[in-house]
Design a protein around this nucleic acid. Sequence first.
DNA 1: GTTAGCATGTAAGGAGTTACATGATTTT
DNA 2: AAAATCATGTAACTCCTTACATGCTAAC
Lengths: 189, 189
Amino acid sequence: MHRVARRTETIELAVLGLLHEGPMHGYELRKRLNLMLGWGRVLSYGSLYPTLKKMLRSSLIEETTTTALPTSRRPRIVYQVTDLGTAEFERLMSEVGPAAWEDDNFDIRFAFFGRTDMEIRLRVLEGRRTRLQERLDRVQQQLSLTEKEVDRYSAELQRHGVESAEREVQWLSDLINAERNSARATPQQ
Amino acid sequence: MHRVARRTETIELAVLGLLHEGPMHGYELRKRLNLMLGWGRVLSYGSLYPTLKKMLRSSLIEETTTTALPTSRRPRIVYQVTDLGTAEFERLMSEVGPAAWEDDNFDIRFAFFGRTDMEIRLRVLEGRRTRLQERLDRVQQQLSLTEKEVDRYSAELQRHGVESAEREVQWLSDLINAERNSARATPQQ
DNA sequence: GTTAGCATGTAAGGAGTTACATGATTTT
DNA sequence: AAAATCATGTAACTCCTTACATGCTAAC
């Protein structure tokens, strides 16, 4: 029953990670988020602001309203992580399991890999690779037991999909090897 | 205000296209649909069956309940396209515009390209390519005006994303060329 | 005979988008 | 002085998933 992280959870993780770089306000967060989650759908305000409010309520972040400026300026609300938020970030980042390697979730986690142990990194990379490999196998298998010949364009679409997935698997394998090599080069303790 | 097709619309198009191959019941449609839309999320029954009911109401499809079988068998409901459904399929397939080349929609349309005119095919392929190129440009640009140096993993993620998109653009270019060549080889009229 | 897969549905609830509302600041 | 973009929100609505409910059929 492996529940897949809701979008909100993905956003929360990304916000915690981004705020680690320093305080930011909502609008800026949104731009950064769109660049990270990018490629797919863009993040709407109606999604971001409520999430920030929710995170405030659970004390993962704090707000600092920039009120009194020389020129009367509309207050910009600047957010920053709390200690609790940092703890939550670390907890989420050290999760291994489907939540870590489903499509969107994986990208975010990967982006913040610099702040995780190599052990976790390897587990997540391998999990992701297995996940993709499973999909590939399932498709290949179902393709093989399809009796009727598929038409040109359907076949081309399938071919392209499989090729992309295979390339992604290769990418992951390279990353895994790189991690292992760096481990041998710098044996800890 | 280019509204992006709702999932339901995508499903409707896919159902109309699949039923063109011959009558099918819901369960079977779902499997085929998952293979087509695949790679991402799977289609839930709670999504499929209501959509089929809706299509029945609007007379895009008809149902034939297989009731009296030798062995008392639970009725399987077999669906088939109506003339109205065929017309709707053709209308949807000849649409050019964002609805045709946004992520999910594009895949389905492409899969049914065999049943469209080459003129439409070219317009859709080119639209899709332009769409991807825009995204690439936007990312490249935003990347260039980011002052702070990004960390290793974020950079790698971006690199990989850009590479994938570029590869997709190349794929589309090849397809476009193939269409153009086949047009020259077989000049109509 | 029991597990796994075939087969069809519905109701409730949640998540997130769209549309609306407002105003400041910067660029052209 | 207009247009674009920065900036922050909210409410309603829509879609879709999740979970439940039911029963048949084939394989082991």
